[in-house]
Amino acid sequence: MKKLLSLFLLLTPLFYKAPPRPNCEMFRDNEPCYQACQQSYKAIQYPQGSRNSQIHFDRAIELCEDFAYAWHEKAVPYLKRGDFITWRKLMDKAVILAPEEKLGYRGWCRYQFLRDYQGAIDDIERLEAMVNYDIGYAQNGDCHLIVAKALAYKGLGQHDKALEVLEAFVAGPDFYALPYDFLHLGVMYLVRGDLEKALKSLKEQINVNPQLADNYYYLAQVHKQKGNLTEARVHIRRCIELYDQGLYRKDVYTTPMDAVSRAEIDALNRLIP
């Protein structure tokens, strides 16, 4: 069961969710927008980014320029294929039309695809200020947007702020651990040299996801720094074992924060006699 769970967690990035499809019946009293909605359904019957798909989104926008879903979906292939200027222009239109719905997504994309840390923080904090409900999760389901915000602060080098945000989130009454939350927390403690707290978080991570090579890499790091070379050796070997089985942090689009490469694992392994 645990193996199945781990496999699911590691494959999660493969199942990127598209934004919720609109219910066209909601536009019944607005014929152009109803037709635009129908056009968007035609668009998603074709491969994302294909000519036919883009043309149907164009038709949707022509019919109802305020239809945020079409702007958003038309933008996505530009993001995934590295044309960020076009993506941003189209996505900004969606955000203007539906800020509560689109800000979190744009912020996450700025973090994930461009490491635009300040831009991600701005979008997520703007959303937080705008709504009085849970702001939700990253598009790929990896983490809550608050965790993404903490990681963005870390990316800016504001380690104290990053830890403050993540600690508060984890201690919150509604916290539910996603696959990498304690890994990120453990690494933040490790970077600060707080080895005991790092150890506690990384052990907690094992409870959530016991088959993640990256976690054992950082456990080996902590034990090495504590001078526990026997423990460090056990963890780096477990790390290599899992890595060789493909059970490491991966994403089809980008390299996630705190993911370790085989080169880094081999380098640490050489340092642990």
Partner: peptide, 22 residues
Amino acid sequence: DGKEAAHKTAKSAMAEYPDHVG
């Protein structure tokens, strides 16, 4: 006229879009 404009655009877009974005 929305439909007419859409048709015209679709024709020009057919010529302008590549098979796939990128």
